[in-house]
Design a protein around this nucleic acid. Structure first.
Lengths: 134, 134
DNA sequence: TTCAATTCCTACCAATTTACTATGAATAGT
DNA sequence: ACTATTCATAGTAAATTGGTAGGAATTGAA
C-alpha cells in the first residue's frame, strides 16, 4: 500500500504552483521540472491528471504554463492526491464490482478506512503543507 | 495505493481462525483454503508472515494446524494487516532512508497519514470485523 | 505571417512488483 | 514405518509502475 511517485510528484507540483498563485504569470513545465527534479515529459502526464480534475488551468504557446484554479488556502491535499492517484481507492471492490459482494467480510472495513484517509487528507490545505504546518 | 491480495487473504484467514479460537483443535491450511477460496500454497506463505509477527501459532504433523495467539476480542485488524502488508508503510522514506530528508515537503504529511490509518485500524478488533460491527 | 515556445495526445518500453505455483525437507501423531 | 501436516525456498507469468519519445495543436511575439 504505497503512494505512487505520481502522488508525490503531483504534490510537489501543487506546492510549487501554490507559491505563484498570486502572481499573474503561468508556470511552465520546464520550470516545474527544474524545481522538482522530475522529467518534463513525466510531469506533463501528471499535470494532465490534475487538469482533468480542474485543479490547474493551462494556457498554451509562448508565456504559457500552469496555474492553480483555487487558492492554496482552500485547496486540499486530498483533492490533489485523488486526482493523480486514481481516486486513492484502497481496494478495487469499493466503487467497482466486488466479486464477493455480500459475503466479503472486509467490505465495510475498506469503506471506513477509505473515508478515514480522505477526511484526514481533506483537512490539510496546500498552504499548510507548504509551510509544514501539519 | 491498493491493499494487496495478501492483506485481504490474511484478514480472511484471521477471521476464520477467530471462529475457532475457543476450540481445542488447530485449523489446517487445507480447511482455510476451502473456506477462503485461496490456494493452500499461497496461504502458507501469508500465514508464515502472521506467524513471524506472533499473531498465530502452529503445530506440525497430523492434527496440526494454526491458531490465533490472542483473543479475537483484543486482536486488531491493524496488527494483522501490518504483519502481511509489509508494515503498511505509505511511502518508503518513512522508516527508511528519505533521499530528500529535510527538503521533502511532504514528509510530515506521510507520517501523519500513516498514524491516522493505523490508529483507525487498531480500533477494529477481529470479532468486530467478523460480526460486521464496524 | 512566420517562428519559437509552449501544452496536448498517445504510443512505447524496461524494470519492478504482485500473485501466485512448485518442490521438497522437517516434524509430529497414529 | 507411515501419513499428515507445517516450513523453507525457488521459480515464473502477468500486471503495474515509472518512465521515455515523437509529434500535433496552439499561442504570443518579432
Amino acid at each position: 500500500m504505497k503512494m505512487s511517485s505520481k502522488a508525490r510528484y503531483g504534490l510537489y507540483v501543487a506546492v510549487e504552483l501554490a507559491q505563484n498563485y498570486n502572481k499573474d504569470e503561468y508556470t511552465n513545465v520546464t520550470t516545474l521540472s527544474q524545481k522538482t527534479g522530475v522529467s518534463e515529459k513525466y510531469l506533463e502526464q501528471i499535470i494532465a491528471l490534475m487538469k482533468k480534475q480542474n485543479i490547474v488551468t493551462a494556457t498554451r504557446g509562448a508565456t504559457g504554463g500552469y496555474k492553480l484554479t483555487e487558492s492554496p488556502y482552500t485547496l486540499t491535499v486530498g483533492r490533489v492526491l485523488r486526482a493523480v492517484e486514481d481516486n486513492l481507492e484502497i481496494v478495487d471492490c469499493l466503487h467497482g464490482e466486488c466479486a464477493q459482494r455480500g459475503t466479503c467480510v472486509a467490505h465495510n472495513l475498506w469503506g471506513k478506512l477509505y473515508e478515514n484517509i480522505n477526511s484526514y487528507l481533506d483537512t490539510v490545505t496546500l498552504s499548510q503543507l507548504a509551510e509544514d504546518n501539519i
